[in-house]
Computed example of a mutant assay.
Amino acid sequence: MQYQSIQPDSLLREQVGRFWVTEGQIPAGQSMTFRSMVDAYPGMIFLEDPAAFFPDHTTAKKPHIFLHGASTFCFEKKLTGKVKIISVHFRPTAICSLFGIAGHELANNVTDLDSVCKNHLSEQLLNATGTAERIALLNNFLKEQWRQHQAVNTAKTQYAIQLLQQGDTTVSLRLLQQQLHITERSLERLFRDQIGLSPKLIARITRFQKAVNALSHPDTESLAAIAYKYDYADQSHFIREFKTFSGTTPQQFRQQAGAGVENFVEWND
């Protein structure tokens, strides 16, 4: 399987992290297993052939393009046939700021893009001549969405997320409240409306993602060292938390995770 990471248009970088292109041909009668890692980020996925992504859904209508909200569960997916996927990896507040949808309405859920905004994007992407044209179409579509919804103010939520990502993920909610000059209730409501998850849960997932990144490096530290580095109570706590957000243990991840798209990796059974 081949993977390509593409930066979005500069006007979109507050809302879009990157585009990921996944392409490959899986031999007839075979499948490839992928495992998701919880990252709490929403996204948009275009499938040239939905049957390759949903091989078990033989009768239900399968969308070519859909949105997904922040997710707190992991899953395995078996891909088959000819795979051509473009994934849009959004920033945490993008569902709210690009589509005007409250984060909690789409958390742990997916929806056909056409049910959110009537458009011809799916048809245009299918008729496009190649990846570059498809990325241009996605950039233009998302910029138009941004123009329509840019009145939504997500600055406080983005700042809180930045503190958690760049600093100590055990930072107290009280400190966040003080820095943002809002009450605990207001902070909870802000995260629920603009992301769909609580600040406490976001902090846990952010810490987990830092541990995933640490395990992904060839010079990986010991599990005990990673647990200590990211302020888990002990190694057992780290293993339990890792399994909650990945469905596997850190040791299994180290042995079986392969290449892939951001937090959606090839899994060597």
Rank of each mutant, 00 (worst) to 15 (best):
T248K: 11
S216H: 07
P218R: 14
L113E: 05
L138M: 15
A227I: 07
K229Q: 13
D39F: 03
G260Y: 08
I85M: 10
D234C: 07
R192I: 02
Q251E: 13
L138Y: 13
L106Y: 00
K84Y: 15
L79M: 10
V21L: 08
D193Y: 13
Q252M: 04
P50I: 09
T22C: 11
I239H: 12
L137D: 11
L67S: 08
L47A: 06
K200A: 15
Q209S: 08
T154F: 01
Y228L: 06
H57A: 15
F242T: 10
L79H: 05
A259C: 04
R13N: 11
H120K: 06
T154N: 12
G130F: 00
R254F: 08
T206S: 07
A259V: 01
T129K: 14
T249Y: 07
E123V: 04
A94C: 06
C96D: 12
A160K: 04
N119T: 11
L142D: 12
I226Q: 02
M1F: 06
D231F: 09
I86K: 07
G69S: 08
L201D: 05
Y3E: 01
K243G: 00
D9F: 02
E76C: 08
S222H: 09
E144S: 14
Y41L: 15
T80C: 04
A28G: 02
K200Q: 15
T169I: 01
S122D: 09
E123Q: 14
I85D: 00
D234H: 12
G100E: 02
N139W: 08
N268L: 05
Q4R: 04
A52R: 02
V38L: 03
V16C: 12
L190E: 15
S10Q: 10
G29A: 00
R204M: 06
R185K: 14
A70Q: 02
R240I: 11
N139T: 09
R18E: 15
Y228R: 14
F264R: 07
A151R: 10
K78P: 00
I205Q: 10
I202W: 07
Q178M: 10
G69F: 08
I6F: 01
V171D: 02
S5R: 14
Y230E: 06
S36K: 10
T131Q: 13
K143H: 02
T72D: 15
P42C: 04
